[in-house]
Design a protein around this nucleic acid. Structure first.
Lengths: 275, 275
DNA sequence: GCTTGACTGGAATGTTCATTCCATTTCATG
DNA sequence: CATGAAATGGAATGAACATTCCAGTCAAGC
């Protein structure tokens, strides 16, 4: 038996052979895949204790899949951690010193790091419940009104495209024709709206959201803080904290959230239709 | 002397006190900050060898900043690696099993993981030289023509907004009026174009890019592979590999790249103006 | 129900480890 | 140049380590 020397393939290998392992060795296999960090850092005695086996069993396990011993196996788990690049936050820190001095490479890495940070922190500010509630609310709507201006406009443009593909009726309320208010007059409480705005909040977006909200149309917002004027008038709202680089914010995390919302609504409708 | 027990602050602490350390201890301090992974995994003897000091010096260093010993210090470096969440790729792997079964949370995490993967892989496909060349080319242009349709349209919408703030003249060639060709007739070789398109390549975008290219207008493209029709007719082009989740691709990485390009062009123009 | 081979627990072993200790060197200060 | 404290190198030490080994247990096959 010869197991691969890299973590990714080792994982697959172990999963495939899991049934063939005797009781205690399987115990080790399961523990290893579930607690890879423990394997990487712990000592044989410590890990064995946690996994409920003898240290010798760890060695036997490693040898049974073709490694020289436990230490050999541990090296694979350590390399896994080593090859994980540094955190986006660390990268941003490192770049903040050199901004302006270096060439375009620093700008690209900086924006990438900022986008990464934003995406990293996205799940933290959004609870599964809120997300599901909002999705259910939006999935019920006959027509979705999409509200955004300026920097946030690309988000609704993308949503409009996605909803189009999902065969969900939308009204993009950011037309250059100035008939926004007339458009929205058709909205009823059987519809719903998605409003996107970040500080400094574009006044048309807030006004439109207000108008719809007062007409009984449920509004779901994507914005940047609890102090946003959108937060108060929304049935539910999502906080997205886009990290900035040199004062510029990308839309990476907001786009990811928008994508998730669109997919989730599509999924919700698909399930409803089945019943 | 009492140094913090978490890596982030320890790093700051060491940097601040670096001058006060005696020669060998400073050697250790520098090595530790430059090779944090070595400290996390290596043994005292091994690390000492690499850093050019005696093992005892490592222990002395740790003790001099208030730690019990080297092992104590090492624990901080290990926690740093532990607390780095798993790779986006791993998260995607883990989710692929459960897609569809779980609720909206899985969808959100999935899209987030896919966006993270895309952003992770962005720097790999874009060399600093190419990026700088493209930026210089675009920074020279009098007017920038932005070409995109459908899914890629939000990217140019965002670019139009960014360039507007940077006081750079743009023409968004995706108007719903059908006067695109007439618009582009004004373009000269002193202008430039940014075209964005992914498979299946929207034919108007390709046609417009072709038109401009033949008129001697340099075109820079953002697309998804070397087989893209945009690749051939562009002065330079960027490859963005957006990972998908359940068949849907977000625009997170593309947005990050677009942001970086816009900032870099702004920076380039600012520097030019100074001279 | 007995035998055989695989599996497992736990003590034994030799090595490697972080740490301490002491002799020597270095450097600032008078 | 002399003196003392701080800094350093390197051997000494005892604890902790991975690994091996062996006796005991278990289950399958006849």
């Amino acid at each position: 038996m010869k197991a691969p020397r890299d973590f990714q393939n080792l994982k697959i290998f172990i999963l495939e052979h899991n049934e063939k392992f005797p009781k205690r060795l399987r115990q080790v296999a399961v523990f290893a895949l579930e607690n890879p960090d423990e394997i990487a850092f712990g000592t044989a005695a410590l890990i064995a204790g946690r996994a409920g086996v003898q240290p010798s069993t760890l060695v036997r396990f490693a040898q049974s899949i073709g490694y020289g011993g436990f230490s050999d196996l541990q090296a694979v788990f350590r390399d896994r951690l080593r090859e994980r690049g540094s955190t986006y936050e660390e990268r941003l820190d490192a770049l903040s010193d050199t901004f302006g001095r270096e060439g375009g490479n620093a700008i690209l890495s900086g924006v990438v790091a900022a986008a990464g940070t934003s995406i990293d922190s996205l799940p933290a500010t959004i609870s599964a419940e809120e997300f599901n509630d909002a999705v259910r609310l939006l999935a019920r709507a006959e027509t979705l009104y999409l509200l955004a201006q300026r920097r946030s406009f690309p988000v609704t443009a993308y949503l409009a495209y996605m909803f189009g593909k999902l065969k969900i009726r939308v009204q993009l309320v950011s037309s250059p024709f100035g008939i926004d208010v007339e458009q929205m007059a058709f909205a009823t409480k059987n519809d719903a709206a998605i409003a996107v705005s970040f500080a400094p909040y574009a006044s048309p977006t807030v006004a439109h959201a207000q108008l719809l909200s007062e007409a009984g149309v449920p509004v779901v917002s994507i914005t940047d803080s609890a102090f946003s004027p959108l937060a108060g008038l929304s049935k539910s709202w999502f906080q997205v904290a886009e990290s900035d680089f040199g004062g510029f914010r990308s839309l990476s995390a907001t786009m990811a959230l928008a994508t998730a919302i669109a997919i989730a609504i599509g999924e919700e409708r698909r399930l409803k239709r089945k019943h």
